[in-house]
């Protein structure tokens, strides 16, 4: 009888423990999902802003047709990308074309002074920040999920209920990747 009671108690503790771990996993999974949808929202916002930007810039820098067209093209690629890998590549490319557009726009003081342009630029800066913040949040949560999925004994529950690792979302900054130059 006592043995039976002890067994029941142990079983109850085990179940409670599993439930707690399960709930933790659910929380983490929802956080990563939420983070991912936030990235999507912000990427879409960036795609929506670009035609506006190009439209405004066109009036001032008619001679930079090439730069403007490459931005439009890069945007289209980013919109069309479906897999995670494609998306990352397309967004990176879009970022680099935008950077060159802003670099060129430095030569057009009228464009820089344009109130509308300044507003779009502020919106774009804000969206870029949101993308990187959303990515940061997503990657942090994905990291927590991945750690939990692999660590013992949580991985038993993870395997039983099919909680899987999530891939990180990497948007590389071309400027960060540059190897440092040594000058003498």
């Amino acid at each position: 009888m006592t043995v039976l009671l002890i067994l029941a108690a142990v079983l109850a503790v085990l179940i409670l423990w599993a439930v707690a771990i399960y709930n933790n996993f659910v929380q983490l999974r929802e956080n990563t999902k939420n983070g991912w949808s936030q990235i999507d929202v912000q990427l879409k916002r960036r795609h929506d802003l670009i035609p506006n930007l190009v439209e405004t810039a066109k009036g001032y820098m008619a001679h930079e047709r090439g730069t403007l067209e490459s931005v439009i093209k890069a945007r289209q690629q980013a919109v069309d990308a479906s897999t995670l890998k494609d998306k990352q590549a397309a967004e990176n490319f879009l970022s680099s074309t935008l950077r060159s557009l802003f670099a060129v726009s430095e030569n057009y003081p009228n464009l820089k002074a344009d109130q509308h342009m300044r507003q779009i630029q502020e919106e774009l800066v804000s969206t870029e920040n949101k993308i990187s913040f959303a990515r940061q949040y997503y990657n942090d949560e994905a990291n927590r999920l991945n750690t939990a999925v692999q660590s013992f004994p949580d991985n038993i529950v993870a395997n039983a209920f099919q909680f899987k690792r999530r891939e990180f979302f990497e948007l590389e900054d071309a400027s960060e990747k540059k190897t440092p130059q040594v000058k003498f």
């Binding site: 939420n34 912000q42 502020e122 919106e123 800066v125 804000s126 913040f133 959303a134 949040y137 949560e141």
Partner: peptide, 14 residues
Amino acid sequence: RLQNIVDEVSVVTG
């Protein structure tokens, strides 16, 4: 700009 910044920080806190 302030609204944008607060929105950005809101994103990073989930």
